[in-house]
Amino acid sequence: MITTTDLTKYYGPNAVVDGVDLQVSAGDRFGLLGPNGSGKTTLIRMLLGLVYATRGEITVMGRPVPKRVAHVLPRVGALVEGPAAYGHLSGRRNLALADAAGPGGPRRTRSARIADALDRVGLGGVDDRPVKAYSLGMRQRLGLAAALLRSPALLVLDEPTNGLDPFGIREIRDLLAELNVAGTTVLLSSHLLSEVELLCTRVGVMDRGRLVLQSGVDELRRPTGRILVTSPDAERAEALLDGRVEVRDGDRLVIRETDPAALNARLVAEGLRVAEVQVERHTLEDAVLEVTRPGSDRVDRSERTDRVDTVDGHDDRG
């Protein structure tokens, strides 16, 4: 669906995106993670032909970008760095203008398509008030509706749940999962690990312009080789498993072991009561923090000269 090779973008002497080889397959739910200023938004802008790469190749849906971007974009729905609309017009009018501006579909189905997109994002009953009177969450939903106007094959969403409350976040997550099941490839960027963890099947992690990690979520969340056991008989369990218990805290134990079923069977066979057995897994957070450094919004004294690359006028907030 999306392939980049050695994709690089310089703003002045600074590489904002640096040698990125991104691979998003059809059907993926790909989460692009990374601290503020790591180049996520610039990467997304290059994928959509808004920003021209200094070096490297981009292919989206089999066509080179930006050369053939006009053939690619009609099948892409996008939200880049926050929604934007004409504040003095209503949401419906904004969507109608957007639909009329590009190859969206026949005019006679326009109002039906707009109504459908608004329904999908939970704005079906919105009145004719101008967008400037919308809340942040409503604007975000309207931006998503614009991205969904023509049933895209690829959704590229920069921080899609920005400004939404927990209910809204879950709603949008469910919507994206549903669209993905129906065949839409989703690429979203976020700095919210939990959001990506709950929705995405693959993640890429950016740090200072480099794609430092690209992997399936399941692989990242592989077991650590430890099992967490809660048992009222924790003391006897520790004695029984001598040497393999790393921590005992009240009735909770951390045990070096890979087979939870065997461990449970053994404890029960010895007459121990087991309240809970859980395989400890690496978290996405560990994996991400391992390969990244703090975002550009943090400027430490000792690092200042080192960090000039991310403190430029066009800091991408993604």
């Binding site: 802008r45 959509l48 032909g49 808004l50 971007v69 006009a70 974009l73 009609p74 892409v76 996008a78 880049v80 760095e81 926050g82 929604p83 934007a84 609309a85 004409y86 504040g87 957007a98 501006a101 590009g102 190859p103 969206g104 614009a146």
Partner: peptide
Amino acid sequence: AGTLRYLLLRPVG
């Protein structure tokens, strides 16, 4: 207003 990028993404040449 931020609408330029969305116009270009429709796409409008």
